[in-house]
Design a protein around this nucleic acid. Structure first.
Length: 591
RNA sequence: GCUCUUGUAGUUCAGUGGAUAGAACAAGGGACUCCUAAGCCCUAGACGCAGGUUCGAUUCCUGCCAAGAGCACCA
């Protein structure tokens, strides 16, 4: 149990003892908006109701009756009972917790013995890979890491659409672009993937504009479902292009999957499940198609098997669920999918629940908002998309420019020279920093919010940004390196030095408190499946550190203070690294 | 038309049934011969509108307005 949890528990206990009634729990405690009020606070409104007093009276009544370990002051401010921590005692405890536990600091066991499958990415083959997919992957990966930190066993799954009408549209497009197809065969994988995106857009436009083409594409689709020899070779080749391309992107983003599912492996079983339950009356025939009537549940009706006899996405999902539960027995499956499928998921989760009652409460749609363009809508159908890889490339270019010193604030004469130009691993650093910029700029947003994407504004390298956090870590690394040079014996070993703590500065105390709150951020992020909780926390910590850094000398401080400060900043570094890892962001030694 | 999501500063985002609504960017100003200026400090600037519930609403409820999404054989 982390120190803050202990303190909260003790306070709740003390209040219960004072009242001789169990009216308070640790979770009722909140953090005051202003540190002058205290470090933690009990709002007395609910308590007052029970005690038939006003909240102000209740708070005053409790002052003097409540005391707990690590608390040095209790005061009533209006309806709040505020507690002040003994920070001189807290500091070594918190720092020791962090430096001993290292990368394990912040982890908890809330999900012990539970399995959660996080299903994300699921790009469709034969379609462009755009920044919407990027948000999906980054969100899914971060959620997976966060849940892992909360003690769950995680299965990363990816369900890829390699069969269905979109493939037929693309292959029709390819048939119209024979020359280009031949030419692109010898090009790098990226060019081949882009070609498929164009072919898809072409097929899609004609499907809507031209009735004859529409019929041709429908015929082609049937052939693909029937594994017709005439189309299989080109289907297989282009499918592989897409998959190879996706694999390269996953690698770049540092995401791995435990299981890749394909629509082509579940469409048969999905179809069977639906047909079987036609007899039981769960599904019904309607206008030649097999549907699920959602009306009685306040949902809409959806087609599971179309009048051509082909399973739709809905039926495939039935087959997928069956397979997923059979293979991994997850307690929960989180489908990380955009908002456009919100109603869709309600329907299939309901249908699944009726077909397989055991799945009840175990299937969830983890929805995130759109990535929209400032200029308007983005659609792979229309071909006006911002490609995921293009964004990564742009970000990297930008970082290299900054490293050159061509951009950014001008330095006054006499200031230290820009070091980044001399870095040996310049490209590696640029790669990590640009990835951090892109990842953070997406993950800092609340899940439900749409992201209005604009290259200039969205991917930032200063302020609330990934590079800002990396920079903070690099800065601490630098101080620690120098501390070794100036005093090789000053190892940051917590055990031997804890007695020497002298951290009285209010800024230091604020940092200590912030560090102690990290486990709560991990917990909240896990509870809400929300990476932005971590993103916010890290920024606040970094900001507090940077402010502190500018006001307090570390290496030049007196021996005792210097030691204590070095330990403090290494705890900051550790916590930043731990949190960044949950977001999938790597740190660099120098930048 | 029905359902869902979102409306907070010039812009992009935080935030909570409670104590003074926080940041970042942009704007304006400033400090350092000092541990990385991708940094630090200061200034200015906001809860879509109208009701309701409540001791208290930016937060919950209702209506309206605005933006986005979904609503039968696409995924």
């Amino acid at each position: 149990m982390y120190i803050l949890d202990k303190i909260k528990k003790n306070i709740a206990k003390a209040v219960i003892q004072a009242l001789k009634k169990k009216l308070v729990k640790a979770a009722d405690l909140v953090y005051p908006p202003n540190p002058e009020f205290g470090d933690i606070s009990l709002p007395c409104f609910n308590l007052a109701k029970e005690l038939k007093k006003t909240a102000v009276e209740t708070a005053e009544f409790l002052v003097g009756k409540v005391s707990a370990d690590n608390i040095i002051a209790v005061k009533a401010i209006g309806p709040f009972l505020n507690f002040t921590f003994n920070k001189a005692r807290l500091a070594p405890v918190v720092i020791e917790e962090i430096l001993k536990q290292k990368e394990k600091y912040g982890l908890n066991k809330n999900g012990k013995n539970k399995i959660i499958m996080v299903e994300f990415a699921h790009p469709n083959t034969h379609k462009a890979f755009h920044i919407g997919h990027l948000r999906n992957i980054l969100t899914g990966e971060a959620v997976a890491r966060i849940l892992q930190a909360n003690g769950y066993k995680i299965i990363r799954a990816n369900y890829q659409g390699d069969i269905g009408l979109h493939i037929a549209k693309c292959l029709w497009g390819v048939s119209q672009l024979k020359k280009e197809y031949q030419a692109v065969k010898s090009e790098p994988i990226k060019a081949r993937a882009e070609f498929l995106g164009q072919a898809y857009a072409l097929g899609s436009k004609n499907y809507e504009a031209n009735a004859e083409v529409k019929q041709e594409i429908i015929e082609l689709n049937k052939k693909i479902y029937n594994q017709d020899k005439a189309v299989m070779p080109i289907y297989k080749i282009t499918r592989k292009w897409s998959l190879d391309y996706f694999a390269a992107i996953y690698k770049k983003l540092n995401t791995k999957f435990d299981r890749l599912y394909f629509e082509s492996e579940v469409f048969k079983s999905g179809r069977e499940i639906v047909l079987k339950n036609l007899k039981t009356g769960i599904f019904k025939m309607s206008q030649g198609a097999v549907i699920f009537e959602g009306g009685q549940y306040g949902l809409h009706s959806r087609v599971f098997i179309n009048s051509e006899g082909n399973p739709t996405y809905e039926a495939k999902d039935m087959g997928l669920a069956e397979l997923q539960f059979k293979e991994f027995r997850p307690n929960k499956i989180l489908h990380v999918v955009g908002p456009e499928q919100a109603e869709y998921f309600k329907v299939i989760i309901k249908a699944l629940e009726i077909v397989r009652p055991k799945t009840k409460g175990r299937e969830a749609h983890l929805r995130y908002g759109w990535v929209r363009l400032k200029e308007g809508k983005m659609s792979s159908r229309l071909g006006n998309v911002v490609l995921g890889e293009w964004l990564l490339d742009q970000a990297k270019k930008e970082v290299l420019e900054i490293m050159k010193g061509a951009r950014g604030p001008a330095r006054p004469a006499g200031g230290p020279a820009c070091r980044t130009g001399r870095l040996k691993n310049k490209l590696e650093v640029a790669e990590k920093v640009s990835l951090a910029a892109v990842k953070y700029s997406i993950l800092k947003n609340g899940l439900d919010k749409d992201i209005i994407f604009d290259l200039k504004e969205s991917v930032s390298f200063n302020g609330l940004s990934g590079p800002y956090l990396q920079y903070t870590v690099a800065r601490i690394q630098s101080i620690m390196r120098k501390s070794q040079i100036t005093n090789p014996k000053s190892q940051t070993n917590p055990k031997s030095q804890i007695p020497n703590y002298k951290l009285d500065d209010t800024k230091e105390q604020a940092i200590i408190l912030r560090l102690a709150k990290y486990p709560e951020a991990v917990e909240a992020a896990g509870r809400n499946y929300d990476p932005s909780e971590i993103a916010k926390y890290l920024f606040e910590l970094a900001q507090e550190f940077n402010n502190y850094y500018h006001s307090a000398p570390i290496l030049k401080a007196k021996t005792d203070v210097r030691r204590a400060r070095l330990l403090l900043i290494s705890a900051v570094k550790q916590t930043l690294e731990n949190g960044l890892k949950l977001l999938g962001i790597e740190t660099v030694e120098k930048m």
